[in-house]
Write a protein that binds this DNA or RNA. Structure first.
Lengths: 171, 171
DNA sequence: CCGAACTTTCAAAATTTACTGAAAATAAAA
DNA sequence: TTTTATTTTCAGTAAATTTTGAAAGTTCGG
């Protein structure tokens, strides 16, 4: 298999995986493209490679930068901006997980807190139901709390088990 | 806050969270509804509660059953089918994670394997690029392998930290 | 076997989400 | 300052996904 074809396939696969997990396809593809590109790429490079519009490119690159997994690179003497992806997969994963936790999970967990103020009601049935409801919300919060701790623990793991790969030679 | 309102809000929030993670909104809402419902519900109950069509209800309930987090319950003397959600959040989470790993992640990781057969090419530049490419694929596979092990480990954790909550009383 | 109760299917419609491209804004060079 | 290169924005459009609803299928009591 030719290198170019392999890269192409990688980009497509990464796009599919992203879209299945709520990350838009193009954003995942741009990320994949930059991941396997030894050199930083310009917006025009990306447009050409993925056959997408300038606007689309701009918006998704910006979002990748917001996520902290792509950075702007300026080449001396060049007016264009270039972009380069973080190549350390561990770092990439942790940034994504942390960012999603912050953006999506935490607000909802906060909202859940409010739901525990269910009024005491007349009637045994309703009271029992309310208790069960609060019990479930509590379970979810506890679970999320545990998961959150687990993630924070992972983030602090100092050993990158994958160092020592070829990658380092080309960084 | 009234219990009914709290449930309604919970359902909405759960729907949003689901859609952000690539699970369709209605499916997440049905799941939330069944989670907080003390009694199993019929398709008609679900339709009424969520104001969705019969077809939509049927398809999403079936999918929840496929995921192993909702089950069909038959009431003696009733011709209708009723549905009930697994209430143990740990079990629910593990089933979802395992299922998504199996359905979405594993096929893509297998595909990545093929990409490592990049042809040896003429020219130093290309050879170096190919090495870097294979390096990245390797990193991703290693990472996925670690994550996979971690998940399998979690699944085996025998202690459910959340037992002892009110929930048990009503099971 | 028939008919009523209920479930399943799926093409078409509605909704949501993503993308384009041209115009406006910005920044550097002349 | 004016020109030119480049980036950003966003209204309109296109594509993808979800939902509907009616028809077909199934199951079961009589």
């Amino acid at each position: 298999m030719k290198l170019a074809d392999a890269k192409q396939q990688f980009i497509q696969n990464w796009g599919v995986l992203g879209s299945q997990w709520g990350i838009n396809r193009t954003m995942a593809q741009i990320h994949a493209l930059l991941l396997v590109s030894p050199e930083p790429m310009s917006a025009d490079d990306i447009m050409t490679e993925l056959k997408i519009s300038r606007g689309n490119t701009n918006m998704n690159v910006r979002e990748l930068i917001n996520w902290g997994i792509v950075e702007k690179v300026l080449k001396p003497g060049e007016r264009k901006e270039f972009f380069s992806a973080e190549k350390d997969i561990w770092t990439v994963s942790m940034r994504i997980v942390k960012e999603r936790k912050r953006r999506e999970v935490e607000p909802i967990l906060n909202a859940l807190n409010q739901l525990k103020n269910v009024e005491a009601e007349q009637g045994d049935k309703n009271a029992a139901d309310a208790k069960q409801f609060v019990g479930i919300i509590n379970d979810i919060q506890k679970f999320a709390g545990q998961a959150s701790k687990g993630i924070d623990g992972l983030v602090k793991m100092d050993e990158h088990w994958f160092t020592g790969t070829l990658l380092k030679l080309f960084k």
